[in-house]
Design a protein around this nucleic acid. Structure first.
Lengths: 149, 149
DNA sequence: AGTGAAAGGTTAGACCA
DNA sequence: TGGTCTAACCTTTCACT
């Protein structure tokens, strides 16, 4: 599962544009496309490449509100409580963190009204939540689409 | 720029797997591949589809530490200050938020030592930062790869 | 807006060095 | 590992609906 420079070069191309043909990647890194193909398959099997996803503008699909919610969760119930959160389709990411919050949850919603319903009806009824703080996202100042390789 | 059900069906497929052949998508949604092609191109041009990215496991590329840092920034200097943050290649996302922090910054680092250097040498020297709080990410409890369409 | 067909390009698998 | 070959498949364009 150790990656060499060729592997990293392939990953760089697929991070930039996951639909780049292997033949094109092969040209750029000066290898045969069979080699690119083999290495991609290997990295997929090893779990280095977890998938390929289209990056969709949320506002284009009527998801214009975003928020990050900090959660303080009662001792010893974090797994049940977090499971409830993951069930919500609006939830995009649940991070376990050190510091002020036990978990940071990033989510999207149709509008502020939908966010309100989500917070007051569907999240507030989850057991084991001690305290939350909602930070509404005013904008994405920067979004990396690639890890530094 | 209004999307119909066919557009959304295509987006769903490309979110799940951005390398799915158009011909395969066409089969699934019962349209010709020429139609899928036309619609994908249209959505790319409209900015609905922002790109296609390989999802790489950070630990596989020696990025084993992750953190979210909350920033309180001095009045009227946010743009210069945020620009400095975006210059750091470890920074993955900069969100402007309401509430306790002006910005939440998500970043990756090789190890805790690299995180320390990043925080104490490269971030602490940025002007306009009033206060920060670092939340180290202990794990990803959940990562959505798709928006709810 | 959607289709079928055709040319050209790409992929995946077997096999070789 | 990396490369070559090849059949099957995919993409893209275009004339037509």
């Amino acid at each position: 599962m150790d990656l060499d420079d060729t592997d990293r070069a392939i990953l760089r191309e697929l991070q930039r544009n996951a639909r780049t043909p292997y033949s094109e990647i092969a040209r750029r890194i000066d290898m045969s496309s069979a080699t690119v193909h083999d290495r991609v398959k290997r990295m997929e099997e090893e779990g280095v490449i977890r998938g390929y996803h289209a990056d969709i503008d949320p506002t284009a699909v009527d998801l214009s509100v975003e928020a990050v919610i900090g959660f303080r969760i009662e001792q010893g119930r974090s797994s049940e409580t977090l499971d409830r959160l993951e069930d919500l389709e609006e939830v995009q990411e649940v991070l376990l963190t050190t510091g002020e919050w036990d978990a940071l949850v990033q989510l999207v919603a149709r509008d502020t009204n939908a966010l309100r319903t989500l917070m007051f009806d569907r999240i507030s009824s989850i057991e084991g939540v001690e305290r939350t703080q909602t930070m509404v996202v005013l904008g994405h100042e920067y979004d990396a689409t690639e890890l530094p390789l």
